[in-house]
Amino acid sequence: MALNLKELSQREPLFTGGARLCVGCPAPMIVKQVLYAAPHNPIVVNPTCCLEVSSAVFPYSSWKVPYYHNAFENAAAVASGIERAVVALKKRGRLARDKEFDIIVIGGDGGTYDIGLQALSGMLERGHRCLYVCYDNGAYMNTGIQRSGATPYGAWTTTSHVGPAQKGKQQPRKDIVQIAAAHGAYAANASLHAWRDLMRKVQTALNYDGPSFINVQAPCPRGWRFPSSKTVEIARLGTECCFYPLYEVTDGGKKWIINHTPRRKLPVEDYLRPQGRFAHFFQKGNEYLIEEFQRQVDERWEHLLKLAEMS
């Protein structure tokens, strides 16, 4: 399928306007790209998250594809059941063998990195042909900006406050893509601003003979404290400073490919400064937070370069 804007602009979106998401929310941008890229009949499984409570409020629905929300921590298991149902029906000749479905989970980072990790691991380990897309906004935004395993080091959230005794979140983010890759799944890091890269990854994943996981940078205006017109720009900065690099892991977790190397790697300050959640980084005496953030980003980027070089 051609991935050009002219062609895409002619197509009916499978996620309609009118959802109750915030202005500037990254979730529908990601959902539209994912569904445009899906090569077969998409079926969406959605754990409890911002997207779910804003797009499927009875008696309304934003979804023009089959959609199932079940619970918070189990979307990968629900998707596993749907995938096996398809196999079972084909085996018994009750569904045409050439009828293909794209079973896609779209969930937030809380339901993926934290409470849903076990179900995700089970889905990946069992090898279900499902794509799990995490729209990674780095906190529990649905319940009001609480820290998650995806929250960056030093970030303010409503459960990692900034005060004399503590300066935001004390731990770095969990490396979820490495965890997914360790299962032998197709795993990738992507970002909503790099639409061509994201959609290519979705197509790769859905044509991959096995489970797949794509983590997508999803800047949240409310939670990250930036103007709602800046979602795409913040995402670009995240990638250009190598905090959120674009890469993919193929060949059963063995081949690491960097999809984008910034021409000029930006200092993390450029990414941190526009976001209110990092405002304390720029207060006098807190310079060490910027240094530590930079050190962590550099360390992970260097590691990624080595992995790509080795494989």
Partner: peptide, 24 residues
């Protein structure tokens, strides 16, 4: 001819059942 899913927990057992049952 059953598709047997050996899940990683009972929570996922019933979750997978919900998925397949909703798939009809």
């Amino acid at each position: 001819q059953t598709e047997l899913i050996n899940v990683e927990s009972e929570h996922s057992a019933l979750s997978a059942c919900c998925g397949s049952s909703m798939a009809g």
